[in-house]
């Protein structure tokens, strides 16, 4: 049913992804799909990595670790953004299309009043990609 699952990852808050990671792995095992972990980073040094190359290495290591732990095929993709606070949604949408994913599993916060002004990443992605989207509440 699914071949390629995209799972957007914020490496800074990877600890909050437990549910989504588990779910993606289960679906991947069930359908023999591959999981691609997608991370968006700024070109400036951040909390997780000192430069984009470093970020990309860490994300690849994260993907490898997940693949090993859960026995699934994993890949990773790093997107370097000029202004991640604003452009993350756009980058994720492009990545989902570009990777040819047919399912997006995505951790997202509970809806709140702020969503009327700034929709969460999950909502924006769901609104703009052709793939199925599974939003996982934390």
């Amino acid at each position: 049913m699914f071949h390629k699952i995209v799972l957007p990852v914020d490496l800074t808050h990877a600890d909050k992804l437990g549910k989504a990671l588990g779910l993606a792995a289960e679906l991947a095992t069930r359908y023999g799909a591959e999981v691609c972990y997608v991370g968006v980073t700024a070109n400036t040094p951040g909390a997780v990595a000192r430069n984009p190359k470093d970020y990309s290495d860490r994300l690849a290591a994260f993907a490898a670790e997940q693949g090993h732990e859960r026995g699934i095929n994993t890949t990773s993709r790093t997107i370097v953004s000029h202004d991640p606070s604003v452009d993350t949604d756009r980058h994720l949408i492009e990545a989902v299309k570009d990777l040819g994913a047919d399912l997006v599993v995505m951790a997202t916060h509970l809806p709140n009043a702020g969503d009327y002004i700034w929709a969460g990443h999950g909502a924006s992605v769901a609104a703009h990609v052709g793939a199925s989207v599974f939003l996982v509440r934390d």
């Binding site: 909390a47 984009p52 990309s56 993907a63 890949t75 990545a95 570009d98």
Partner: peptide
């Protein structure tokens, strides 16, 4: 295990090559 370290469109560059990173224990943020 493939690593698709590709950057997305917009002419955003693929990093990075060598540079002299200063070692510090400070974590940004």
């Amino acid at each position: 295990m493939t690593d698709e370290n590709v950057s997305a469109g917009d002419g955003i560059p693929t990093p990075d090559g060598a540079s002299h990173v200063i070692e510090t224990d400070y974590e940004i943020g």
